[in-house]
Design a protein around this nucleic acid. Structure first.
Length: 565
RNA sequence: UGGGGGAUCGUCUAGUGGUAGGACUGCGGACUCUGACUCCGCCAGCGGGGGUUCGAAUCCCUCUCCCCCAGCCA
């Protein structure tokens, strides 16, 4: 309704929190972001980060970063460090930094409590047997023969498990709940398993490690988390989350609330698939600029501001969704349009000689850094007799709507003057090799004659001052919107062969070649580009295309090609 | 033929009994020394069927479709 007022978009979780504050259920809200350090964060995680940190900040609460490091086989320090870097880069700072492994002793003590109260037992069935006893989706499970063993016996076994007396997989601690429950999670879930493995934080201290369901809820309770926000697949686990906390002397009672993941089209968004792409060498790493990982997006040149704005726009709900990539692209264009310095760069150079311009002369022209923001100042652009223009800005036999250079035609050189094409020089293969043009000195930018109108304006770079750079044209990783949704086909079949096209000899204004990692620009009429934070080196600049500019000519051109115009 | 969730323009999302709104996309136009930006306009939706009501996206019944769960993963 309110179109002219900027309000924080609401969602069902925010509404719950507002109510909890109003009713006095909580004085302060506490959330947490709980990644498992077994891979890199992706833009879907950013949704959760923005939600958890955002909603706590809005209501003066706190947010912890807690690593869910209960599986030493898959987790490590490197992932942990990378995750912290990603969260900070996104623009958030945690109040407390914790690890589930910080609570291993308490988790153990609570398990002892559960055994003592007759609500857990040591299982001797093998994993396969447990599966067989569990029943199916439509048939109830059967009680384990070890289910009713004396608590003392279980306690003794549990202590010996902890002491490292048993091999992996031989015993397990199970909660005694209900083998006939229609919710399979309640059919005596495993609470602890034996893993004689070294943990990246606790070393060889433990031989048993808690399962997610046990560790997560209790960790939340220990930290006084008020709202434990997670994704939809944990909805079935909520009864278990609550059962555990109700059956131990829990220090607090957090509430788990589920929301839907945020998927994007033309990519994949699970750590498992992303890991496969990395390990199969389909991409150069977790930070490949085509990856939807935060490391990849950062390297590509996406800004944290754009990603935050994107998720703020998207909102939170419980409906499964695959968001159109165009929405993300819009968010980054909106952000970069305001902030990116403008510059001219020629991606596919075609030489132009200005025949009436003196040889050997260089003239420095003033050009605005940003046409809508004078405060960003001006830059000097070198003009010489020989310049490069974009090959696609010249056509020998153009269609009617073509506003760029053509034989005998006129066009404005951005920030300079109007030129006319007099001669087209071709090589033996008949390819256009060079254009001979004359310029009209009266039409120089800033002079009275500059008001003369021509249809088109094109960008250019001095052939003597321009610097060569490598440019990586990043595009969508897959050729279909939902690579995982193509029945009977492997998603890798749909990898886009042109997701990363490399241009070795693009020409840029000298200042761009001097840029350093992370510097971004708008190449006028082309798109937004950013110095690659890994491969761009002094003397050997490499820039990634973050996103193209919107291009209405491309649509017209396509329609012409299809004979619609 | 178990349990848990979800269906609102092409996409995402508001709306919780009183004219279905926004963003993105698309289309048309204005402006333009970026075919960008900006501005204006347009197209487009309550999964189906019943019921309650003066009035239903919203309440009730029913049907359909989609997602998740049978790890000693998270």
């Amino acid at each position: 309704m309110s179109s002219d007022s900027v309000t924080t978009p609401t969602n069902f979780i925010r509404n719950i929190i507002i109510r909890d504050l109003e009713t006095g259920k909580h004085d302060q809200i506490v959330t947490r972001f709980p990644p498992e350090p077994n891979g890199h964060l992706h833009i879907g995680h950013a949704k959760s980060i923005c939600l958890n940190f955002g909603v706590a900040a809005e209501f003066g609460g706190r947010t912890n970063l807690r690593f869910d490091d209960t599986n030493p086989l898959k987790e490590n320090e490197d992932f942990m460090l990378a995750i912290m870097e990603d969260v900070r880069w996104l623009g958030f700072e945690w109040d407390g930094l914790f690890h589930a492994s910080d609570y291993f002793q308490q988790l153990y003590d609570y398990a002892v409590h559960l055994i003592r109260t007759g609500k857990a037992y040591i299982e001797e069935l093998t994993a396969e047997e447990i599966r067989a006893y569990r029943g199916t989706l439509t048939e109830p499970g059967q009680n384990s023969p070890f289910r009713d063993r004396p608590a003392e016996e279980s306690l003794d076994l549990f202590k010996r498990m902890k002491a490292g007396e048993f091999e992996d997989g031989t015993l397990a601690l199970r909660a005694k709940i209900d083998m006939a429950s229609p919710n399979i999670n309640m059919r005596d879930p495993v609470v602890y398993r034996i893993r004689n493995a070294s943990h990246h934080r606790t070393g060889n201290e433990w031989h048993i490690y808690p399962m997610y369901d046990w560790a997560h809820g209790i960790s939340d309770a220990i930290e006084g988390i008020t709202h434990s926000l997670c994704t939809l697949e944990f909805e079935d686990h909520r009864p278990l989350y609550e059962w555990f906390l109700e059956n131990i002397p829990a220090p607090s009672m957090p509430r788990q609330i589920e929301f839907s993941r945020g998927n994007l089209d033309y990519t994949v968004m699970s750590k498992r698939r992303l890991r496969e792409l990395v390990e199969d060498g389909r991409v150069s790493g977790w930070d490949d600029p085509r990856m939807p990982t935060l490391a990849g997006l950062r390297r590509r040149g996406f800004t944290p501001e754009a990603i935050r704005a994107f998720w703020a726009d998207m909102g939170i709900s419980k409906a499964d969704s695959i968001i159109s990539m165009s929405v993300l692209e819009n968010a980054v264009r909106n952000d970069l349009n305001v902030r990116a310095p403008r510059t001219m760069a020629v991606l596919d150079p075609l030489k132009v000689v200005l025949t009436n311009y003196p040889e050997g002369e260089t003239e420095w022209l003033d050009a605005p850094v940003h046409p809508q923001n004078e405060e960003m100042g001006t830059r000097q652009v070198a003009l010489t007799r020989e310049i490069w223009i974009e090959r696609e800005d010249f056509m020998e036999n153009p269609p009617g709507k073509y506003f760029r250079l053509k034989p005998g035609g006129e066009v404005r050189l951005r920030n300079a003057f109007i030129v006319q094409c007099n001669e087209v020089i071709k090589n033996d293969q008949g390819e256009v090799e060079e254009l001979r043009c004359t310029f009209d000195p009266e039409t120089r930018s800033g002079m009275p004659g500059a008001s003369r109108k021509v249809k088109g304006t094109i960008h250019w770079v001095s052939a003597v001052h321009g610097k060569p750079v490598e440019i990586r044209l990043c595009d969508r990783l897959f050729t279909v919107p939902n690579p995982l949704g193509e029945k009977g086909r492997d998603y890798r079949e749909f990898l886009n062969p042109h997701s990363l096209d490399v241009i070795c000899n693009a020409i840029v204004e000298p200042a761009v070649a001097e840029g350093t990692a992370g510097d971004f620009y708008q190449f006028e009429r082309t798109g937004y580009f950013c110095h690659d934070n890994v491969d761009s080196k002094p003397g050997k600049p490499v820039l990634n295309r973050i996103v193209t500019l919107r291009d209405s000519w491309a649509r017209i051109e396509k329609e012409i090609a299809q004979g619609k115009r």
